[in-house]
Design a protein around this nucleic acid. Structure first.
Lengths: 212, 212
DNA sequence: ACCTGAACACCGTTCAAGT
DNA sequence: ACCTGAACACCGTTCAAGT
């Protein structure tokens, strides 16, 4: 049974959940597929090409919402779904952020979003800028969220916010009381609510420039 | 002349400009300082500790604006200055995004921003969420900006948007016309204007929830 | 207090050769 | 069309030992 391109992507995604991006090596991936590392280079030009394919696969699971709602509600739903797709795999946001893939799923979803915004009355430049502004926020948010999350695989580290707070010296805590409080608050705040907050700010701001 | 901690950070920053994060290795850094790689481990616990120190050093150059202006103008100035600081070194945004440093400069600036927002009438949670929402946008924007920029060192690649556009198959361009137009438009759009657009959306959205 | 030599356990990638 | 063996040119990090 020879290995197909899709088998490699599937195995890479599984390995991602186990060990994160840092644990994903060509040699380990080959091992999981019971082939030798150089064989992977017949299917992919290099590791980056594999990561591009993985980023695309992340978006394959994205389900776009129905059209019958105002553009702002629709956009909110798309952003929420984008975050969900990124979070479906460990380090998903980091994998996606490291790529610039012009692959089918990325193109399909981008195209759809631009079309919806143009239908709402935005010109092309406004639609494109809106798309990217939203993407930057969701990616940045989710990278940090996944960095401070216990990995799905089970054991592992991730940035421990409580530990970060404890490592602050007494001098630092006294000198920067607001910052010290920030770390504590961040550890206890609800991620979904934080996400909604930023998203709502962005969408409220967009309402100022997008008609209809 | 023995090497000091600050010498290492300075050399690492110089090396960053030359070869980007991917070109920054402990062995090369040691070479630039004319010492052996293991010596670095006397000064830093590991490579990540060095990167944390570099992220902090990036912020050391940040100059916070004067207080005598409305909170929204002040916040806009801070975000603009943050982007400038990240862009002062090749891959600066990527270096910063990979860290979660509770170091002096990070604490100092965070503390200052929270204080200013609280003075404008925001409660602690609103201030913290505002800080992070803004940070996610600026980081995401600048990572992408630097990825598609010709590196300051001189030669090198970076993602070439025109090349990306040309690699689109005819089938893709026909199937996803809006997405194809996006890549072309992104290549010709002005980065500063794009940055201002996102920033203004965010700040307009914040005005809805921040009093004064 | 700071640095070295030698070593360990890895990496991504190339390439001639095999089936 | 797909895979292997062997090799190249690297990595980050540890640790005993030196000054």
């Amino acid at each position: 049974m020879r290995v197909q391109r899709q088998d490699i992507i599937d195995a890479a995604m599984a390995l991602l959940d186990e060990g994160g991006v840092d644990g994903l090596t060509m040699r380990r991936l080959a091992g999981a597929l019971r082939i030798q590392a150089p064989s992977l280079y017949w299917h992919f030009a290099g590791k980056q090409a594999l990561l591009d394919a993985m980023a695309d696969a992340l978006l394959a699971e994205m389900v776009l919402p129905e059209e019958e709602m105002p553009w702002d509600a629709w956009l909110r739903a798309v952003a929420t779904e984008f975050r969900r797709a990124l979070k479906s795999r460990r380090d998903g946001a980091r994998v996606f952020a490291g790529t610039f893939p012009a692959t089918d799923n990325v193109l399909r979803i981008s195209d759809h979003i631009i079309a919806r915004l143009r239908a709402a009355g935005a010109d092309e430049r406004l639609a494109v800028r809106t798309l990217f502004t939203l993407q930057y926020f969701v990616l940045g948010f989710t990278i940090e969220e996944q960095a401070t999350m216990p990995p799905p695989g089970g054991q592992g580290e991730g940035v421990n916010l409580i530990q970060v707070a404890q490592r602050l010296t007494a001098e630092q805590a006294a000198r920067y009381p607001n910052a010290a409080a920030t770390v504590r608050l961040l550890a206890s705040d609800d991620d979904d609510a934080r996400f909604r907050f930023g998203l709502d700010r962005l969408i409220d701001g967009l309402k100022v420039v997008i008609p209809s």
